[in-house]
Design a protein around this nucleic acid. Structure first.
Lengths: 344, 344
DNA sequence: CTGTTAGCGCGTTCAC
DNA sequence: GTGAACGCGCTAACAG
């Protein structure tokens, strides 16, 4: 491993000149720069990461804190992580994974104090989140993926649940649907402060009401069987039901199954639109689900960019970053029958 | 950020004593150790990571090289990554993500030369893999997840495809199935040197032949439609078909759909066993797929452990680590009809 | 535009 | 059992 001193000696310049040539912090004449570069390639020089961090007092790694398989790592998370890692790399940073449960906030701070990471990305943020509170108090650069209830001075990027719900309702309403139900995550997730459950509920209710439609929302466990039961419940509550928006992937499969079991056709009798959906899941249904898929990659990108700006400039008043889901047409949504025949 | 000197001053000892108390490299009296620990907690001391790496000449990070969304990050990969990150952390290491395509082998080496990572985990290894070749030549500690054709002196952990295929055939044969087909990944994946496609093909053929059964294998694109076509092809080729082993998740959904379209019941007429399957996918089918799911977490764990031993001891002759998939009963496999009625 | 030099915070070899 | 001192490889003043 060649050092900077080796390069300097070979190029017949001083060590610091090599450093400046490398960082561009100070002008270096074309001639000497050339000699330096020649020496560097000849020696296969690569600047030592640890020495650089130590001297410059800054780390070149970003940490991603995520809850270890609490809610399961789905495809959306994978897209997010991959995108974040790539964007970080494009900016000269490395992304490290810190699998910490929400209760391990202290350990996160310890690692930050070690100077291990220049900043922290916190995933799966709850409405009230100890990790975020401690990071905020410690003054460490961080960015939330998601939003706590309290937002003052806290940098974040999030999925635009409100917009997504509104887009979903709009899409179905434009196709003539009037009786549009919503199948959300479980009550328990809401009780645990899982923000998406709340935001989507609100967004859906607002979207429906605004259009003079009556919201019918149910919560549901994250299993096909729970989805079956929920579908039955919805049909009983509203026989005129012609469309269901779901934000619960496993349950969605149960909904489709239950409808088909009852002899109802998807999408001819009932349309299904799966929102905040992971990549690929649509393909696994028959017919393929029409989905609005979660912007995992874009969130990863925006999250890293936001964090980098916090690292660079402290916490200026940054514009909010809300990323909506995008529609992916499948085969589970069709125009509403008009007038819709009674079911029984 | 308190430094070791701060701690030493407060504890009225010399800096090096603090270092020894921390590392245990040298005995320290109980009394002074206590004073030191008190000082450390009082100051919230955390040893600086960069300084430590620089002085000790070793990094505390492991790198995970994976092909950026080439084949898509599924649930298995997520399990793997999460598990690897956790095990690394339990051993005092951090896991960083290096999204590099196979063609960027040079950049991987550059990062290693920077001392950024103490070792590298290479995922999705192809039969002939430039990344592995270069790492091997450079002498950098690494471990493959998967196997190249050449294995001499190359540390690896992998899924036991042969055993998994054999277990799958055994399981079905025990239930009376004689005409068991295999639906593999695409021809293209094989052409690109994707090892699982080869290994599973071989394993299946051996497992069948050994039992006096005739192997019937087809390759298939990674889509439900391709799966449909493949199912049709299989049924035409072998009308007595009573079971299908699949190693192609998206295609599996097409197989189920095609069978049902033809009025065949799953599993009464045809059993389906999805091997090397991601977590959760089984749930998305109706009835839920019987699967043998890929040991993502265990691979992550073994991969990190293997890498750590390479870092510590060079490359001793390590025992091979082959991890089989484990059966998860669903509703798509049943006892074969005997004698099975003709289809037409 | 270039060279000199003092640290960055910790590991580790020496003397005591 | 303890302390002093040097060095890891580089950054960033400070001189010139």
């Amino acid at each position: 491993m060649a050092t900077m001193q080796d390069v300097a000696t070979l190029a017949k310049v001083s060590l610091s000149t090599v450093s400046y040539a490398l960082s561009g912090t100070r002008p270096v004449s074309a001639a000497t720069r050339e000699r330096i570069e020649a020496a560097m390639t000849e020696l296969g020089f690569q600047p030592n990461a640890a020495a650089r961090s130590l001297a410059s007092r800054r780390s070149n790694v970003l940490a991603l804190v995520y809850p270890a398989v609490e809610r399961g790592l789905g495809g959306t998370v994978a897209e997010f992580v991959d995108s974040a890692a790539q964007v970080a790399r494009e900016h000269g940073y490395h992304l490290v994974l810190w699998p910490f449960r929400t209760s391990q906030a202290e350990e996160i701070l310890d690692l930050v104090r070690q100077g291990m990471a220049a900043g922290v990305l916190v995933m799966d943020v709850a409405l009230d989140d100890d990790r975020v509170r401690m990071l905020q108090e410690s003054g460490a650069p961080y960015t939330m993926i998601g939003r706590t209830r309290e937002l003052e001075g806290r940098p974040w990027v999030d999925i635009d649940f409100e917009r997504t719900a509104d887009d979903a309702v709009q899409y179905l309403a434009d196709l003539g649907h009037r009786h549009i139900a919503f199948l959300n995550h479980s009550e328990q997730s809401a009780a645990e402060g899982y923000a998406p459950t709340f935001r989507a509920d609100d967004g859906y209710a607002v979207a429906m009401t605004r259009r003079g439609l009556t919201p019918v929302a149910v919560h549901c466990g994250e299993t096909p069987n729970a989805g079956r039961a929920a579908a039955a419940e919805l049909l009983d509550a509203e026989p005129r039901l012609s469309a269901v928006i779901t934000m619960n992937e496993y349950a969605t499969f149960g909904v489709v199954a239950e409808l088909q079991r009852r002899g109802l056709s998807v999408p001819d009798d009932v349309s299904i639109l799966s929102i905040v959906s992971s990549p690929g899941v649509g393909e696994m249904s028959n017919p393929p689900l029409t989905t609005m898929h979660a912007p995992g990659a874009e969130l990863g990108r925006q999250g890293v960019l936001r964090l980098l700006s916090v690292i660079a400039d402290g916490t200026p008043d940054l514009p909010q970053v809300l990323v909506p889901c995008s529609l992916e047409e499948g085969g589970t949504v069709s125009r509403a029958r008009s007038p819709r025949p009674a079911l029984d």
